[in-house]
């Protein structure tokens, strides 16, 4: 069979629109995940046993259940038992964010643990209350060590967002399927998509390695 990449050209506008969807889902999930990871990591380092148990259970659920099952659950399952309704974008973003929170909170926990006891003691000796101490002294330092893993999380989110095509959102993968069904050609569209993701992920991991070096460097006082 002869390859003909020119069949892609008429679909470029669709790819453009789909790219926006992919990027939106990824960024929204990452930001929401980051926000959720803060209380989750605070539960993990808390002295209160019930909070720890909750946070560990949360993490194990999102690690233990296949992502596609989670997506189907959120989109098809939950609205049948709870009075909520999600469109595909919301359901996907929510699932990805909750997943990211599980992962990011682990490295956030590590970041918080790595902070010298003296930082807590100095804050306490100055009369700073726990919430301000965490918000202004501890977390800003912990976030720094979380940066590299945020990039990794961004990468896996970017790849995982292809799952939302299965609940009908038109992302890049979905455009590939549309081309396939219209033109009966599969190699060209999926090859282009594969290259696209590969290049993007390589660029991002370079960024991640760069950040990791920066973080390690500024650790040396």
């Amino acid at each position: 069979m002869k390859l003909d990449f020119s069949i892609i050209l008429p679909w470029l506008p669709n790819f453009g629109a789909a790219l926006i969807v992919t990027v939106q889902v990824t960024i929204c999930s990452l930001l929401l995940g980051l926000v959720l990871s803060v209380p989750l990591s605070l539960c993990k380092i808390s002295n209160l046993r019930p909070l720890q148990v909750f946070a560990d259970f949360y993490t194990s659920v999102f690690r233990g259940v296949p992502l596609l099952v989670q997506v189907f659950m959120m989109y098809f399952g939950i609205p049948l038992v709870l009075p909520v309704k999600f469109n595909a974008f919301q359901a996907g973003t929510l699932v990805f964010a909750m997943n990211s929170a599980a992962y990011i909170s682990e490295s956030m926990k590590g970041g918080i643990r790595a902070i010298d006891r003296g930082q807590y003691e100095a804050a306490m000796a100055l009369g700073v209350h726990y919430p301000s101490m965490m918000k202004d002294i501890i977390l800003p330092q912990a976030i720094k060590s979380v940066l590299p893993s945020l990039v990794n999380e961004f990468i896996s989110l970017l790849k995982n967002t292809t799952l939302i095509s299965s609940i009908g959102l038109v992302d890049i993968l979905r455009v590939g399927q549309m081309i396939q069904s219209k033109t009966y050609r599969a190699f060209e569209p999926f090859f282009v998509i594969a290259i696209f993701y590969y290049v993007l992920v390589m660029l991002l991991s370079t960024l991640g390695k760069y950040l990791e070096r920066r973080v390690n460097k500024s650790d040396r006082h």
Partner: peptide
């Protein structure tokens, strides 16, 4: 403790300045 710590300052062996 919070009230007391407003009136008592502490200087540490390892300074414990906030690096950020």
């Amino acid at each position: 403790a919070y009230e007391v710590r407003k009136k008592i300052g502490m200087v540490f062996q390892h300074f414990n300045l906030f690096p950020h």
